[in-house]
Structures are given as C-alpha cells and as structure tokens.
Design a binder for these strands. Structure first.
Length: 443
RNA sequence: GCCGCUAUCGUCUAGGGGACUAGGACGCCGCCCUCUCACGGCGGAAACCGGAGUUCGAAUCUCCGUAGCGGUACCA
C-alpha cells in the first residue's frame, strides 16, 4: 500500500488536513506500506515557503512521519510538461483560448445536458478532451460508487497557456508516477475525481483506489475557521493539547470502530483503523471532548513527563512539586499556570475572593493558622494538616472557614490545589509571610 | 442554475431488515467523595429529518421532499 498526504501550502495546517494526514499515516503504518508527502504548490500566488514550514512543523508535532518526500509539485513541472505534450500529441488534450465566459455562453446555448467541448486551436490553455458519451465511475472506499455522466462534464483546463500544470492534472500525474495505491483525502475533491480519472485513462495508467473523507465543520455546523478557536494544529499546540490526545480525538472524528472504546492509543489505532468504516457525514469539531480527552492523556503521563511538557510549555523551571499537586485539576498544559502560578509568582488579585474570605473571622483564622504553622519543626504534609485541623477544632468552625482564608492568603484566589499540599510546596517561611500579609489587609 | 455527496441524543458515534425498551463517549443534571476547583464513583434526561413505498416486520432497502455541504477557476 502506498498512500500520500498532499497539502497545498496556502495557510496553516487545519485539523481537517491533519485528520487526512493521520488517516493516511494510520493506513500506511497499519499495513507496512509507504507514506508519501507531497506539497501541492502549483498555485504560485498563495504558496509560500513559510506555509510549507508550518505544515512540516505541524506534522512533526503530531508525530506523523513520512517515508518519501516532501516532494514539491512545481519541481515536477518538466514531467508534467512531458505528459502534457503526449496528451496533446495523441489527441487526449487540445489547446483552446476559450474563457470561462465562453464556457458559460456555450452552456447557455446548448443547455445543461451538454458539457463544454472546445475546438482545437494553435494556442491557449490546454483542455482535456472528455468523451461525449458514457460516464466515469468513482469507486470510493467510504462512499461506494458515484457515477458522473460525461455530458455533464466540461472539458477541464489541465494546464495554463504558459504550459504550467493545473491541480487536477498534476495530482493525477504525480499520484500515478508515485504509484499511489490509495488516495485518501477530503470530500471536497470528490467532484474533481472524474477529471483526474480521465487523466489516468488518457495516460493509459491504472488509477488508484479512492477514499473521500467527510468534511469537518465548526461547532455551529459552518465551515471551520479562525473564529471557532483552535482550528489549526498550531493553535491546538498553543492551547496546551498533547499530540497523542489530538491524534486520538481526530481519529474518532469521522471514524468509529465496532466496540465502544473512546480512549485508544496510537498503537491501537494503527492496528484497528479501517478506512472503509469512515463515516460519510460531516463531523463537527467539538473542543470540549478534546479537552476531556486531553485531561485523560495528561494524567497518564508520568510526573517527570508531565513536568517536562509543562516546563517547555511555560518556559519555567523547577515545576515538579507544583505539577504533582496540580495534575488532577488540569485538562490542558495551558490550565497549569493560571491554577498554580501563584506558587512561584505570589498571590493573585481576586478581589471577590478576598472580600468573601478575608473578613474579620477570616483574619482570626489566619492569625491562628499562622501561630499553629509557625510552631512546626517539620514542614511535612501530616503535621501541616494536623496543625490546621487543630485550628478548626479550637475555633469550633467548619473546615472551610479556616482553609479558604488560608487559600486566599496563599493564592489570592478561591481556587487552588489542595491546601496542605500547597503549603508544603510553597515552604514554611514563604507561607507564613503570605498568611501574615493577608491577615494584615483583612477587613 | 447545473452536477454530486450527506442526514441516529446538543456533539462524536454504534447499528446494515426481527437480538432496539436504539448502545457507548463528551457535554448537561442529580447524588456520593470533599478544604476550593477538579479527579473519581453512581444515577438521570436526551436521537432514528419529513412523507410515501417494499415487507409478516424498516433506524436499517427504494422513491420523493426538505435541509446542510461540496464541485461547477488558465485555485488547490
């Protein structure tokens, strides 16, 4: 099996493209086949080296590798030219100066049941000659057969007047030359497939098998765009998601196995993925589920692995102890610092929390807590807890009437990791200083 | 306009003529755990787009309608 991922570098790699890459990769790895990466850069206007780098980066981050490529499509222009001359010579293609307007006029005159057929000229763009009768059938692994009547097809332009290849021609030539066996790509290409199939016929080459994946939509059912939040791989990374979680989520977005497993390791995906089971209907990208899944993956990481990931993500060092007490409470790498950054940077400024807990009673609790904590010789979890529970008992109040003021004193907010653990990680001296400072400002 | 694809809980999906009282997951709601927030556990509400037809029997097959999406570029 030889598959390929062929993005056009006209922007960042979106999750739809990422999913196509993943499915191809899963098929290649699951079959011992070969994955080819080709950059479809024939659109010179929109294709940029920066975009190519971005796509390469995104694939690397996702840990989707390839065996051949990246192949630049424009660098194959000599070969495209060669095939073009061949088709021109044997009558499968012809030059025509007909414009889009001409085609429209032609159809207005001949009715909808006659596709545009030009007359050969000495110059102009190159059009592929579509047979007048018959039909081209696309055999699709996920959709079954789709028949396209030739009378509905216009002779497609396959090369510009200057001889440079257009997409529907270049893909077919490149896929044929690379001996691709399975073309797995977005459904937006389904209608293009008959044109490509006709190129195969003209070349006299056996076409590959096709599989067209349903498109991905935003939560509102509309086409995915920036306003849907993290829609590109780059944004997913910035939002603190783990590559493994993204792979798992993307694999299940449009594909389901017979069993009900939701958390599936990449190794298992490679083993189980079956392109013929891909869903036919478009799927919506639901970040909430990704968040949940990411949380599960986060918690499966060892403390050292999570710490390393967070230190790289935040650019801070010495996070291990804080990570340990925070890991149950975060779903993404981005959640960590807002939750536990106060351990390093000092308490935050949540006025609402302060107003609620740094009251008169709160100050009393803080003073007592300070005294109890100051008397400890060993700054360990148990003694810390015992000391604070002692304050609760002595003051005859609910636990939270002591713990919350202490939390606000340490964190400046009403939410934090466990209070005893937090005290321990912050250290005795600093903890006492924060409690004292808070008591001083309490109403 | 024309050509084509698609249609199961809010979302991702399982199901492929009788095993469907339509299963799982996210989310939501409730309870438990509990120092906050979470995590975890338990329970709950929640769907076959509409209409015909085929059949003893339809979520499953056929047709029509409707809706969404894609293509219709000298873009990819």
């Amino acid at each position: 099996m030889r598959v390929r991922f062929a993005p056009s570098p006209t922007g960042a790699l979106h999750i739809g493209g990422a999913r196509a890459a993943l499915y191809n990769w899963l098929m290649a790895r699951g079959s011992g086949g070969t994955m080819v990466l080709r950059i479809e850069d024939t659109d010179r206007e929109r294709s940029t080296p920066e975009n190519v780098d971005q796509i390469l980066d995104a694939l690397a981050w996702l840990q989707i590798d390839y065996d051949e490529g990246p192949i630049s499509q424009v660098q194959r222009s000599a070969r495209h030219e060669e095939v073009l001359q061949q088709l021109l010579a044997d009558g499968h293609a012809y030059r025509s100066t007909a414009t889009g307007e001409d085609v429209k006029a032609y159809k207005a005159q001949h009715g909808a049941d006659k596709g545009f057929r030009g007359t050969p000229e000495a110059e102009g763009a190159v059009r592929l000659r579509v047979p007048d009768d018959g039909a081209t059938v696309v055999h699709d692994l996920v959709r079954g057969d789709t028949t396209f009547q030739h009378v509905h097809l216009d002779d497609p332009v396959i090369a510009r007047a200057d001889g440079t290849a257009l997409y529907n021609f270049a893909v077919a030539v490149d896929d044929a030359d690379a001996q691709i066996t399975h073309v797995v790509r977005g459904e937006d290409h389904l209608s293009n497939t008959p044109k490509q199939l006709l190129v195969y016929v003209a070349m006299g080459v056996e076409p590959p098998l096709f599989a067209h994946l349903p498109l991905l939509h935003g939560p509102d059912g509309k086409k995915l765009s920036k306003r849907h939040g993290a829609a590109s791989v780059q944004e997913l990374r910035d939002a603190g998601y783990l590559p493994a979680a993204v792979r798992n989520y993307l694999a299940l977005l449009g594909w389901g196995d017979t069993d009900d497993e939701t958390l599936i390791s990449t190794e298992e995906l490679v083993r189980r993925f079956d392109v013929t089971r891909v869903a036919k209907n478009p799927a919506r990208f639901d970040e909430q589920k990704l968040r949940w899944m990411n949380g599960r993956y986060l918690r499966e990481l060892s403390l050292d692995e999570l710490t390393a990931a967070l230190e790289e993500y935040t650019g801070r060092a010495g996070l291990r102890d804080a990570v340990q007490i925070s890991r149950e409470k975060i779903q993404t790498l981005a959640d960590f610092w807002p939750l536990s950054g106060f351990i390093f940077d000092g308490p935050g400024e949540d006025e609402k929390a302060k107003a609620k807990w740094l009251t008169d009673a709160g100050r009393g609790a803080l003073v007592d807590a300070h005294d109890a904590l100051a008397g400890l010789d060993t700054w360990e979890l148990e003694p810390i807890e015992a000391a604070l529970q002692g304050v609760v008992a002595a003051r005859e109040v609910k636990p939270k009437d002591v713990f919350q003021p202490v939390r606000v004193a340490l964190a400046g907010t009403a939410v934090s990791p466990g209070i005893f653990e937090t005290l321990q990680v912050i250290g005795q001296e600093e903890s006492l200083a924060r409690i004292q400072a808070a008591a001083a400002t309490a109403a």
